[in-house]
Computed example of a mutant assay.
Amino acid sequence: MTTDESVRTRGTVFDRDGALVADYRLGNRSGRPAALDLRLHRLPAEHAVPAILTALPGWVVSAREDTGAVLLAAGGRLLRHMHQYTRDLGPDLGDVTWAEPGIEVRAAASVASSRLYDTWLAAYPPEHPDGGDDVSPANLEGLYDGRTLGPLLGFSTVALDEGRVVGAVLVNDAELLGPWITEVFRDPDAKYAGLGGRLLRHTLGLALLDGLPSIGLAVTEGNPARAVYERLGFRPGESFMTVVLPGGEHR
Rank of each mutant, 00 (worst) to 15 (best):
T3K: 10
T3G: 14
D4P: 15
G11P: 15
T12S: 07
V13N: 02
V13I: 13
V13Y: 03
F14H: 14
D17M: 11
G18M: 12
G18Y: 13
A19C: 11
A19T: 15
L20S: 01
N28G: 10
R29D: 05
S30P: 01
R32V: 07
P33E: 00
A35F: 07
A35M: 04
A35E: 04
L36N: 07
H41Q: 08
L43S: 12
V49N: 05
A55S: 15
V60S: 09
E65N: 03
D66W: 00
T67W: 01
A73R: 15
L78Q: 09
L79R: 14
L79W: 14
H81P: 11
H81N: 14
H81M: 06
M82W: 14
M82Y: 14
H83C: 07
H83N: 10
H83K: 13
Q84T: 12
T86D: 06
P91C: 06
L93I: 10
G94D: 07
G94E: 06
G94S: 09
G94A: 11
G94K: 14
V96H: 07
V96M: 03
T97N: 07
T97M: 00
T97C: 08
A109K: 06
S110L: 12
S114M: 02
S114G: 09
L121S: 11
L121Y: 15
P126E: 00
E127V: 12
D130E: 15
G132M: 12
D134R: 15
D134L: 13
D134Y: 12
S136A: 11
A138H: 14
N139D: 14
N139W: 13
E141C: 06
E141L: 11
Y144S: 01
D145L: 03
D145T: 06
G146I: 09
R147H: 10
T148S: 10
L149W: 03
L153R: 09
T157F: 00
A159R: 03
A159K: 06
D161K: 13
D161C: 11
E162T: 13
G167R: 02
A168C: 07
L170Q: 03
L170C: 02
N172E: 13
D173C: 09
A174M: 08
I181T: 08
V184A: 05
R186L: 02
P188N: 06
P188V: 05
D189K: 15
G194L: 08
G197Y: 01
L200S: 04
T203S: 11
T203C: 09
L212M: 02
S214H: 10
V219T: 11
V219Q: 03
G222E: 10
N223P: 14
P224N: 10
R226V: 03
Y229M: 04
G233T: 06
R235E: 10
R235S: 07
R235A: 06
G237L: 10
S239G: 10
F240Y: 15
V243N: 00
L245F: 03
P246Q: 00
G248S: 07
G248F: 04
H250T: 04
